[in-house]
Design a protein around this nucleic acid. Structure first.
Lengths: 193, 193
DNA sequence: CTCATTTCTTATCCTACATCAATTTTCCCC
DNA sequence: GGGGAAAATTGATGTAGGATAAGAAATGAG
């Protein structure tokens, strides 16, 4: 149960087996059905969740009422609204499962206690956020400078598992285009190759 | 000299006066002329810098050879390529001063030593990155869903000081549009109000 | 002050992607 | 396994912002 998350953690910074056990004690296992909302706009985000099995999306709802997907998360990823969670203030985001999903979650209070018990984990989580920041920055750049087609190709290469598991319209949303456009892009790619 | 940075730090998490002094000892003061490149594509980013006075931009150069500005930083901000710095791997970015600038910089080795001396700073830097992440996420969302006009208005409201100090073409680049488009947007706004 | 360089504006035309609408295909759920 | 809903495709048309070009204005170095 904890094997993957332990690997995930120690890939960021060294943590002893004992310290990992303390972490385990602060995590709660949670199983949720497909299409469950884990966070709603306006709520304070009460969790950071590590995905053992399943798939989750994080999204805004824009003025026209359409979903704008910021992130997919699958096995071995963390999902949360960092801004809302860390400042314990209302979120603008929704987080929702796309499949039946098994999570390890930690709430704000337990995370704070955990950091007091295992200060070394501050470092782990710092490094995790740094990496996320870096990824988001590249994605931001790509969104501004690359065409939709190139972003799609990049997405398929980077996350082939997700392409299989998630409806096209949601991938379109993630890429910042309409489902119709994505359909046309795929058609052109087929024709060309 | 350290007054502002100390405030900046303690706004993230409590740090004692003694601990701040240790931090000061690890920082190096640096003054650089306008148009100095602090980081070039391909180099490893060797610093995190706090801006005492001045203005800096961080940008990509895209396939067509154009600058794409990801971030401006002015007084009381930090600037670095987090990805390159924290993994000490080659950067894709440029960082360049837009004015004569006074910085407090720390390199990778000193930051690591500092964290060993003052573990509490891990927390400070974690919180700083979390906040940056959150800001970047909103900006990403805005880039995808809002029009250029609305992003410009938002920028002017949020960073009025920067609008005064930075050429329009660079603001256009930051907004992900061409200078011509920004000029047109401004014209329309004038006409309308 | 002045000449050169950079920055800004304006006009024309163009393109990537959006919007709207109508099918067709796929997916589930009873 | 069949019926209904959700998803994907396709076509026609619209539009925000890009590309190019050329001139005007502002800035700065000597």
């Amino acid at each position: 149960m904890f094997r993957e998350i332990d690997k995930h953690i120690t890939r960021c910074a060294p943590v002893s087996g004992y310290e990992l056990e303390i972490l385990h004690g602060r995590l709660k296992s949670k199983t949720v059905k497909k299409k469950t909302l884990l966070l709603r706009q306006g709520e304070v985000c009460r969790f950071e969740a590590y995905i053992i099995k399943g798939c989750v999306k994080k999204y805004y709802i824009d003025q026209q009422g359409d979903q704008v997907i910021l992130q997919f998360a699958v096995e071995d990823w963390w999902i949360s609204d960092i801004g809302s969670f860390s400042e314990q203030k209302p979120s603008n985001l929704f987080i929702e499962t796309l499949e039946d999903t098994e999570l390890l979650v930690i709430d704000f209070e337990n995370k704070e206690i955990l950091f007091r018990e295992v200060p070394r984990l501050e470092r782990v989580f710092r490094i995790m956020v740094q990496r996320s920041y870096s990824v988001l920055e590249s994605r931001f750049y790509a969104a501004i400078t690359h065409t939709a087609e190139s972003r799609y190709l990049d997405f398929v290469k980077r996350y082939p598992q997700i392409v299989q598991r998630v409806p096209q319209q949601q991938i379109a949303s993630y890429l910042g285009i309409t489902p119709e456009s994505l359909s046309r892009i795929k058609k052109q790619l087929m024709a060309r190759k």
